[in-house]
Simulated scan of single mutants.
Amino acid sequence: MEQSVQIITVSTQDLDAARGFYVDGLGWQPLLDVPGEILFFQVAHGVALGLFDAVKFAEDLNTTDVTGPAGLTLSHNLPGPDEVDRLLAAAERAGAEILKPGQRAAFGGYHGHFRDPIGLIWEIAHNSGWAVDPDGTVRIGLIEA
């Protein structure tokens, strides 16, 4: 199997809350919005995030057991600490719960966490050791002091 991910799909009990948070609150533009079923956003080059109504998600999988992994976070890296603080504040205004305000991180950068209205946890970070080459290759190096 090729080491690749194009779509990350997350089940949600409240698709309308997800739409309100991401579209109305944060201003994201949907790739596809099927009310009562699924909402897709492009989140990176060639990568989409799907938020799927829990009932429809279970039907699509032909199962009633849709439990998934615990401890999942989605991370967004920004150019600096000020941008981290601004995005955390915007997320809170849009209805997110701040789990960890912006602060110096153990890895040497700066970060904070929020939980969106459907339960997804986001890390908003500035990590100077993170870089993406023009061809999409990720480089993770040492953090600036």
Rank of each mutant, 00 (worst) to 15 (best):
A105F: 05
Q13Y: 06
L72I: 14
G95D: 00
D53T: 00
E37N: 14
I118E: 12
H113T: 10
E97A: 14
P134F: 04
A18L: 04
G20D: 12
E83M: 09
V132S: 09
G141F: 12
K100H: 13
W122C: 10
S4M: 03
R104Q: 15
I38Q: 08
A58I: 03
L15E: 09
L142F: 11
L87R: 08
Q103E: 15
Y22S: 01
V132Y: 07
A145I: 12
P81E: 06
I121H: 05
S128N: 04
D14W: 03
G71P: 02
A145H: 14
T63L: 03
S128R: 07
A106G: 12
A18Y: 01
L61P: 00
V138Y: 11
V47L: 08
E92W: 01
S128W: 04
D65I: 00
Y22R: 01
T12I: 06
S128V: 03
H45S: 14
F107I: 11
D65S: 02
V138T: 15
R139W: 12
R139H: 15
A44G: 11
E59G: 08
R93Q: 12
A105Q: 03
G112E: 02
P35T: 00
H111P: 00
P35Y: 00
A89D: 14
D82W: 04
A54L: 07
H45W: 05
G112T: 04
K100N: 13
L72Y: 04
L99Q: 07
T63I: 02
M1R: 11
V55D: 10
P117F: 03
I124M: 11
Q13K: 13
R139T: 15
P101W: 12
P81T: 04
T12K: 03
G129K: 11
A125I: 12
V10E: 05
G95I: 00
D33L: 12
R139L: 11
H76D: 05
R86A: 09
T67A: 14
F40D: 02
A44H: 08
G136K: 07
D116Q: 03
V66C: 01
T63R: 04
V66W: 01
L78F: 08
M1T: 14
L51P: 05
L32V: 13
A89H: 08
L32M: 14
A105E: 05
G109T: 05
L74S: 00
G46P: 02
A90Q: 09
A89V: 07
G136L: 10
T9W: 02
R115E: 10
F52K: 08
P69H: 05
N127H: 15
Y110I: 09
P81C: 04
